[in-house]
Design a binder for these strands. Structure first.
Lengths: 340, 340
DNA sequence: AACGCTGTGTACAACGTTACACATTGCCCG
DNA sequence: CGGGCAATGTGTAACGTTGTACACAGCGTT
């Protein structure tokens, strides 16, 4: 019917200016408050703006001012609860500063992560929050693009780029120690991964081993299970394998809450009780764990602190007031519930 | 140290053109393929591009071409699993078409939803996928902004705007009928809401009542519990109230999976067995329900179909090939697991 | 009375890109 | 051999906004 979609009215400053009988510059100043404008003029301008339903064109502002008001957040998977919850806090923190968040889902693909390191699309975002998986540290540090970047969840030992993360070694040790104090002797670990990318697995393995050693428990490779991903199904599968092996664990430390919930599912399937037969602890403190059966004992990273710190570091970079690359270690606590 | 953050090199077409000894226009054509360019020239251009690390400025392209390559997705809460999973599919579908997704979290705030209806920031997104909560239908239809818009999860009876949703009345009836076939007589409903906004609650209530009537079961208002939100804690609380009342239900139809999981949690707390003492069914088919204890019987909307249909409708509008406003009804199925 | 300041408004240019109209060449064909 | 067409390249003008430099009035100060 109406051909309205092809023709865009595109009311701009010029139209407003004409209606208000002032110059475009004055309209701009009146709206931005960038320079003083007499109140009578301002009234005419806002009146004209409302008449015409004028809204400034963001792309033009971006082009002129080199600021988009957008920050990109790149995570492997949006629908992993930990990331979803983290993103929520990032969105909140960003909105407080007048920024909108753009989501990129890498699924851990190297190509997608390289795209992120290159600033996504130039001029599209003012800065990037990035939770890497495949890409390794040196690649993060040697990138050519100058878009402000803050790494999330990465290991804290490097020095080239801003970071925010919990102390993963300590977190894993805390989790393992909790199981030890509970009286467990055969403590399995689910989520082990070779040190290939930006993942946190190696540090968690280290914390696990350190805690075992400190308690004079022997490290049994049979009890350490690799998983490709950190989903429920991976935890379920690893737990199955663990039960089918001769490991005979009385506790499991899972590298994520989803793994833990999958493991609990497998244990129920096999008719084993949690925590009586096998205790389970995770990491992430996702909301789901507060309502699962049994409720999930977990290591809780302070997600609000992580999000706030990351956004703050990023805005320091954007504002140009950034110091030398900083590493923020966010606090974590052990949330004791029923599963361990 | 380096003051590099303040000075941006900002390599543009002009620089590439100079190095390749051609005009900016030719560079543009060579890269976009918009018009033919001799292969020798193209080679020089791509060489120059790589030399300089040139990446076209998105804002400038947007300004020139009135296309941002961005679509906005506005949902109440990102970290509600149903939305997180849906967004994931939307992101996938959008990427296939070369689009990036911008997230807006309204938290159901009227003000935030009005902002969405007004096209967010003009020129910032090419189109919007919107899952409304507070804003009502007429407000969606009378908006001034011309940004392409597709509504998600809204009721399908209206005609002013493109929609994608499951048949919520039928879905609720299917859920209720499943409980009835199971032999339940005292079927409660959790998630009831007055018809105030864009929510789907009224239709689900209607489906619930229809199914009861068809089975000659009496509708007992005591068994219908209102909740403000659809979170686990709301389901838990409502279930508690239900158990404290004299309703004595033998089954519960929850308007979302999170409500159902909260309800199950409450039932466990009270020492009741699911489904033996009280059967529970939800809607959403979130991944969590496949691993909960017991696994969750639920009505499964085809999220992939919803996402694809929504993106397709939106792109039809963006391309200007849109017909009269269309309503797409996505399929749903009952996923029978252990909880009912 | 001349000076300079403040307060207000304007014209112009530029951000980086691409559509458009035009210019140039070579070559086929009548 | 000249007209015309295809193939390729270029200059110009926008897209809509805002920073900068400038204009000009009013007014207090020396």
């Amino acid at each position: 019917m109406s051909d309205s979609s092809t023709r865009r009215p595109a009311v701009g400053v010029r139209d407003v200016a004409a209606l208000a009988r002032v110059s475009p510059t004055t309209v701009s100043n009146a709206l931005s408050g960038n320079r003083p404008v007499s109140s009578s003029t301002r009234e005419r301008v806002v009146w004209a703006v409302e008449q015409l339903g004028y809204r400034p064109n963001i792309s033009a502002q971006n082009l002129r001012g080199r600021r988009t008001g957008l920050i990109g957040v790149a995570v492997p998977e949006i629908d992993v609860p930990y990331f979803a919850e983290l993103i929520r806090h990032v969105v909140d923190a960003s909105r407080q500063r007048g920024y909108t968040v753009l989501i990129d889902q890498t699924e851990g693909r190297l190509e997608a992560e390289r795209f992120v390191l290159n600033g996504m699309n130039p001029g599209m975002v003012d800065g990037i929050l990035f939770s890497p998986l495949s890409v390794d540290r040196t690649e993060c540090e040697t990138r050519r693009d100058r878009t402000p970047l803050v790494l999330l969840g990465e290991r804290v030992s490097g020095h080239g780029v801003d970071h925010v993360a919990i102390d993963n070694v300590a977190a894993a040790a805390d989790a393992t120690n909790h199981l030890i104090r509970r009286g467990c002797h055969r403590i399995a670990a689910i989520g082990y991964q070779e040190s290939h990318g930006g993942g946190t697995a190696p540090q968690r393995t280290q914390g696990y081993r350190t805690a075992l050693r400190a308690a004079d428990l022997t490290f049994d490779p049979v009890l350490v299970r690799h998983t490709d991903r950190y989903h429920r199904r991976d935890g379920e599968q690893a737990m199955m394998e663990l039960l089918d092996s001769s490991g005979d664990p009385d506790a499991v430390f899972c590298y994520s809450d989803l793994l833990a919930l999958g493991a609990i599912h497998a244990l129920h399937d096999r008719g084993l009780r949690v925590p009586e037969d096998v205790a389970v602890i995770g990491i992430d403190d996702i909301d789901e764990g507060r309502y699962s059966t049994p409720t999930l004992t977990t290591v809780a990273p302070d997600k609000v602190a992580i999000a706030n710190a990351a956004v703050e570091l990023l805005f320091d970079q954007i504002a140009g007031t950034a110091q030398a690359p900083r590493q923020v270690v966010a606090p974590h606590t052990v949330e004791v519930r029923r599963s361990a």
